[in-house]
Write a protein that binds this DNA or RNA. Structure first.
Length: 289
DNA sequence: CGCCCTGTTGGGGA
DNA sequence: ATCCCCAACAGGGC
């Protein structure tokens, strides 16, 4: 039912975009729906690719549709009956229509005209892919140098590393035994090497759990749950750490729910003091209601 | 039933 | 440079 890239690609590659209908103006911002529809209609889809968390529709004439699913977006092939929350319809020259569905309406479809525009769009937003051969402990340390930002916020910053999301960051830091609040600039090269290894491991574990490939997307029916079960800490508040048994604690870091074993991932000193004393404004919020 | 909180994300303003 | 809030909706706890 739900489509991932591997399933979507054969449906669209080499096909003509017969008609594109945007139902939700928010989806195509900043472009007006009619502008995006006009730019795509009649073009041939040469390839369907992925960069970071973007789905890239490469169309004839160097026109690129850059689609982001955000939290709840998906692409359905010929859904019957038509689902709720359809934000756009894409009709191909053959095969059923594709529905872009997104209950929460965070998803977007942007246009890049020309290869130059494509590259500048991504170079402004995305760093290396974790499976890029240039991805190394030295790369991480170089980017993190001098930064006070928490290491988890650093990992979630798509301009540093492309494609690492909240669950992956928690899992990778747990495996690397690094507390998410540690200052990125204070990690040693050995720390970064463990982080690098753990990020790659989490990525591959997530892919394997879904029976997917690196270029597939999430949101396959029934697969998200089992995928989540493979992870050891995320959303496991109060459950015993699989390594030492201490209950997993929930924090808020970088505005995201963050799960950590504070024995396996020792808290940095500055935060130990803060936590012991009165709750200062730098103290991590647990649940301030 | 209603109120409140949470969340697989990223951007803009403070 | 960094943090906070917001987008809009569904689902769960109380």
């Amino acid at each position: 039912m739900e489509t991932i890239r591997r399933q979507l690609a054969p449906l669209v590659q080499g096909r003509k975009l017969e008609r594109v209908r945007i139902l939700d103006p928010r989806w195509s911002r900043p472009l007006a729906p009619a502008e995006l529809e006009d730019a795509l209609t009649g073009r041939c889809v040469l390839a369907l690719g992925r960069r970071g968390k973007y789905l890239v529709w490469e169309c004839s004439g160097e026109v690129y549709l850059l689609q982001h699913l955000r939290m709840t977006g998906s692409v359905l092939h010929a859904p019957d009956p038509p689902p709720t929350h359809v934000r756009a319809w894409i009709e191909l020259d053959r095969g059923g229509p594709l529905a872009i569905v997104d209950p929460r309406r965070f998803g977007t479809g942007e246009l890049a005209l020309g290869e130059q525009a494509l590259e500048s769009f991504f170079s402004a937003r995305l760093g290396l892919e974790p499976l890029d051969e240039r991805f190394s402990a030295e790369y991480l340390r170089g980017l993190a140098g001098g930064r006070q930002t928490p290491v988890k916020a650093f990992l979630l910053d798509q301009r540093k590393l492309a494609g690492v999301g909240n669950i992956y960051a928690d899992e990778a830091l747990f495996r690397a035994r690094i507390h998410p609040l540690r200052e990125a600039g204070r990690l040693s090269l050995a720390d970064w090497e463990r982080v690098r290894e753990a990020v790659v491991w989490a990525l591959l574990a997530g892919i394997e759990a879904r029976g997917a490939t690196i270029d597939d997307f999430r949101h396959v029916d029934g697969v998200w749950g089992s995928f989540q079960d493979r992870f050891q800490v995320h959303r496991r508040e109060g459950e015993p750490c699989p390594s030492c048994g201490r209950p997993i604690v929930k924090l808020r870091v970088a505005g995201r729910g963050t799960y950590v074993c504070e024995r396996c991932q020792p808290r940095p000193r500055a935060f130990k003091r803060q936590a012991a004393g009165r709750a200062g404004r730098f103290a991590p919020r647990s649940a301030s209601r």
